[in-house]
Write a protein that binds this DNA or RNA. Sequence first.
DNA 1: CTGAAAGCGCTAACAG
DNA 2: CTGTTAGCGCTTTCAG
Lengths: 380, 380
Amino acid sequence: MTRGTARSGNTAAPRSVDVARLAGVSQKTVSRVFNDEQYVSADVRRRVLEAAEELGYRRNNAARALASGRTRSIGVVTLGTALYGPTSLLMGVERVVRDTGYALHVVNTMEGDAAGVTGAVSSLLDQGVDGIVISEPIDEAGAERDASFRIDVPVLVLGAPLPVTAPRALIAGGGADLMARAAIEHLLDLGHLTVHHLAGPQRWYAAQDRLEGWRATLAAHGRTVPPVVEGDWSAASGYRAGRELAEHSDVTAVFAANDDMAIGLIRALTEAGRRVPEDVSVVGFDDIPVAAYVTPPLTTVRQPFDAVAQEGLKRLVHAIENPNADPLPTSDPPIDLIIRASTAPPPSRTTPARGRRTASRALKGAEHPSPPNGGKSTQR
Amino acid sequence: MTRGTARSGNTAAPRSVDVARLAGVSQKTVSRVFNDEQYVSADVRRRVLEAAEELGYRRNNAARALASGRTRSIGVVTLGTALYGPTSLLMGVERVVRDTGYALHVVNTMEGDAAGVTGAVSSLLDQGVDGIVISEPIDEAGAERDASFRIDVPVLVLGAPLPVTAPRALIAGGGADLMARAAIEHLLDLGHLTVHHLAGPQRWYAAQDRLEGWRATLAAHGRTVPPVVEGDWSAASGYRAGRELAEHSDVTAVFAANDDMAIGLIRALTEAGRRVPEDVSVVGFDDIPVAAYVTPPLTTVRQPFDAVAQEGLKRLVHAIENPNADPLPTSDPPIDLIIRASTAPPPSRTTPARGRRTASRALKGAEHPSPPNGGKSTQR
DNA sequence: CTGAAAGCGCTAACAG
DNA sequence: CTGTTAGCGCTTTCAG
């Protein structure tokens, strides 16, 4: 149990003094080598490295953090669901964080409301993270934000305004409204008079943005803005919405706030005898992996999760390491509308009687045999 | 910049001595209160808590870790994809970890092979985690494991044998073979003579397990074991496999190693004029959220991600906190085969001529209008 | 270029 | 029930 046994009884982890002794230098020099500080002769550096290797030395991070006041770690607050969007963002974040040499603490909050986020952030702060990423928080009307709760480390909020008080905040990943716009305009270009919207839960900023983009685009084109149907992101809710929408024969195009809902929607429509895309066009959002393979292949907006995560993190790390510098500028993410087979011109209203084509419906998909994405039109 | 300013110049974070001073107790007592140790009078506890509250005190984790030798954090190694399985496991893990009071470090490795896992684990060890969870590692043939790399903290490996040397290892989340068995037997019960398998990449243990379960079940029933088609988990690969399988008219049932591939497969089959389930039955694996809403709704095996994560973590935490005790026993996860509309009896071979039903195909799905899962048969 | 000394803020034994 | 005394293994001064 004693420590002094050096490298014979290898019970305890070796410390930098052990390395120093073996290399015949001072402990401080070992520290210098491991921190890549300059002013260490090549020879000494080599000897230290060799000694460390031999001992299997690894720095004690707790001690480092305690002495330096920095943990070199970033905390991420995510929502506790396996939803494709948040998940993809998390993966993107992890990728970048590692590249920057920071460690990642992840905390989930089932409810993305102010209270939930506050709790999650609090536990991150307890861990002593140097920066925080809040992914897709929710705007909980009822929960007044706790004014006394301040986050003093830099905070990156992905896709939403800030749900807490933080002087050093950065925002990234907006633009969902512009993406929605691309989807709506595609539909209008096809000849639809207006577009219905199957929205996500409006507590989510992500859902609000898409709705706003939809509404604004319709308004900009002078179209009537039909009532919104709200889902909860799930295919099940899309299905329920679909049963509703199927009853209104004036619905010829629907923009769903995510692909899962779009898929549920299509199923309900189909079951109700409304063909997609002949009778109703459907556009999704996200471009989940199966989107190209469902029936019919889904026209959708691809979200640039990786790009958003990458840029956001770069700005966060910059803010952490340069506390007094100006924040890095933001750049707009690309908009990627992927046109597949779930959208088509509206049924021609001059020929109300149709039915001939029903028999061939089963193989409709075969008309678009391209495996992955159909044509891509990247705008902006 | 000085510290001594106490609570007037609130530049630096308050420390436990500050709280102690305010509460009129010793620093150690503050420590006691925050660690929920016994032997603190209710009155003192209250005073300490109030002082802490007033100062906005929060424990310094680095100091705690340094002094105690424990970080109260668990590291998780995940694959760098947004695949539903690994993601769901991660969410499950996070949920449980937080409940146990530990923090979570997440490290992604793009390649789940030995080298990638080693690197990820290494960075976790650098962070000083008390335990490690390795989620779904990959069996990389080429990468010989580095014998000198030992993990001395407890390790929980989810769904696979261990890719590294670790004396204190725990395994959880097997049973995929039994789940595969349930799927295969369902198909055989329907009258299929044999079942083809669209496997996952065989570098993944998860894929190997499913394949093995498939093969064993077929063998146990004295059926011929057809050649395996291997995909890469993606719908695209399922689509490619489907084009292949569609050419063999003797294929009447396919067991896909995950739902994404099943969906791609169904699309390819449908495009080739092979109807699902009339001509070919398809079973997936995972029960992804859209599985109930694709066309046709997918019969699949639901994986108990939460249960697996929860039980595994419980055992891991036990191992961390009781270094010398025996590991907790494992329990088998439930098997949940969800029968929807993608499986049916094989086409009757006495009536080669069919076609009457084609016209109604478009609404085939309408015969199964139940929104979520169809019937569930939980076995074992 | 290198070293010595002094903590970082807390927990771990021990004493009361 | 409460306080004292030592460190944990580094980084940070400040001297060479």
